[in-house]
Design a protein around this nucleic acid. Structure first.
Lengths: 335, 335
DNA sequence: TTGTATGCGTTATCAT
DNA sequence: ATGATAACGCATACAA
């Protein structure tokens, strides 16, 4: 392994000078500078991240908490795209990223312990909030943290604009002539609460009643749960003309349930999803949904984290809201 | 930050003893051992990975090269599942994983340089081989490397059993009565070559001719390319009765092209995909395809890499072949 | 402008 | 069984 010491020997100078030259310090002679850099290049010198980290207490490494709530894990397109944007932007900003696990070697670590062990400069939480306490510990650990799609106090976050998203969807469906709209929502999370509240508010503004039974709990990314919920809705004496699903994947379960009744979308009942994943736009009829700018959310998370790191104690956690985009498909019939 | 030195002070012993006690060395007294461990626990001691890495030249960190060939990136379900399995199993084996990028800080690094900089104990290559030379450099760098779905000499690899996969698909389609089978294949890669060769061999064994024009080049994961290829095939005087697509996503392009001609699958022409992603099984008609055990491939890659690390110079690169599984759907009509 | 010295936190060798 | 010491590779404060 070629170290700065070896280069120093080669160039007949001290290791300190080599270090300075390689890091572009102002107080090193031009000629020496060139000589050292040439030697480093020629000898195939690569710095040692561990030594550097030990000395500077900076790793230029972000940790990312990417826990799979369901079986889908990384194959969850929304979170994958967020991660993708986060990774790309982090790299541009000069940071590597690593996954934060829960086990390491023989011992079990909490997220916070793991992050401290690896000296991550910052941590992004891109995950379904199924395990709050450990995440809370992470946020409180003093390591700069940014979350995606949840809020903790004292911690930066990147949120999808769920309020405007629901507003856009409801308004669109209303404009298509629907007056009886049901909402199968996800399990109880902040996102769900916000979406349900926005849904109800917009309906109220439009003068639409939301009858008992039109708000039915489902599960994110679980077609089976949505299928069951759909059957419930279709069994009502006063059927809705349009059903909102927790997300695009969930819609697939609803679609199947509807087809099993010998009915079809959108002729017999209209439907909308949420997320705007690739799949939904390939279906026929094409799914009406709201695209979340997942990639952009990841990008902004990286930028916010870099800011938190560089500003240190003067950093004020930001709350960044990313708008979505209505994708009018073919699953909402004009009434 | 609480260090072993602090614990030593607390326990009235030397840092060396603390280190030994915490690492379970045999030559430390029982009472001292307990005292130290209790203190470490109570003081919230977390080891410092950088210091440890510097001293031991081991990071317990794998790098993963996960380059996005197309825009899809992490959202490519097959690769995502491989990565998922790799990450999970690596964690079980005591390794963290980090992405290997090409830029780091101000400077640009090659993959190999990056891996050396971070002192990764091993590297997994999970990517479309669109950039061979840099990868070759990585494989030759001396860092234990395992690739998924390509082979380099002197380097362990995990391969999907494409030969048996094509055999299963062709045999199935043949058994369904098809005698005119066309194959839209991916761009030129090892995987493509193997699949094409296997396709031709099995056809030969079954006595099926493969006319000029039945082997047409497409692009992996590119519905548009497959749409064009499909139109070509359907314009032949002697149309195929069944079309093989490079993968499940590509099939979507073909399907669209077929429907635009006013035809339908499988009534007018049959089709099969490759990969067995979630999407394909949600489509109606359900896609006939070959499921690759992507998750398992990631798992085996992690295991192989761990083996390469621990066996060091005595390691003999293994070639691990993972079988696929035929998913008979509804897109192949019985003739 | 260059060099010397020190220490980051840990492990490993060798005495005691 | 325990401790003193050195070293891993690098960056920095300070001296020259």
């Amino acid at each position: 392994m070629v170290t700065i010491k070896a280069i120093a020997r080669q160039c007949g100078c001290s290791p300190a000078t080599v270090s300075k030259a390689l890091n572009g310090a102002p107080d090193v002679g031009h000629e020496m500078m060139c000589r050292i850099r040439a030697a480093a290049e020629e000898m195939g010198y690569i710095p040692n991240a561990a030594a550097r980290a030990l000395k500077t207490a900076r790793t230029y490494n972000f940790g990312v908490l990417f826990r799979e709530g369901s079986r889908t894990g990384l194959a969850h397109e929304f979170f994958s795209l967020v991660l993708n944007g986060f990774q790309r932007r982090s790299e541009e900003l000069g940071y590597d990223i690593s996954f934060i696990g829960t086990r390491l070697g023989d011992r079990d670590y909490t997220y916070a312990e793991h992050a401290r062990y690896r000296n991550y400069d910052g941590v992004a939480v891109i995950t379904i909030p199924d395990a709050d306490p450990p995440i809370r510990e992470l946020v409180d650990s003093g390591i700069p943290t940014v979350t995606v799609d949840h809020e903790f106090n004292g911690c930066g976050c990147v949120m999808s604009d769920n309020v405007q998203g629901m507003r856009d969807l409801v308004s669109y469906v209303y404009a298509m002539g629907h007056r009886k709209i049901a909402f199968i929502h996800g399990e109880t999370t902040v996102v769900t609460r916000v979406r349900v509240a926005a849904f109800c508010r917009v309906c109220a503004e439009l003068g639409l009643p939301v009858p008992e039974g039109y708000l039915v709990p489902g599960v994110f990314h679980d077609p089976a749960a949505s299928a069951a919920a759909t059957r419930e809705l279709m069994a009502l004496r006063d059927r809705p003309t349009c059903i909102f699903y927790p997300d695009d994947i969930s819609y697939l379960g609803g679609l199947q349930a509807i087809e099993e009744m010998g009915l079809s979308v959108p002729e017999d009942v209209s439907a909308v999803g949420y997320d705007g994943i690739f799949l939904g736009q390939q279906l026929r009829p094409k799914l009406t949904t709201l695209r979340q700018q997942a990639d952009l959310m990841g990008v902004r998370a990286a930028e916010e984290l870099a800011r938190a790191v560089s500003e240190g104690r003067t950093y004020l956690p930001g709350r960044i809201v990313i708008p979505g985009q209505l994708l009018p498909g073919e699953t909402v019939r004009r009434l």
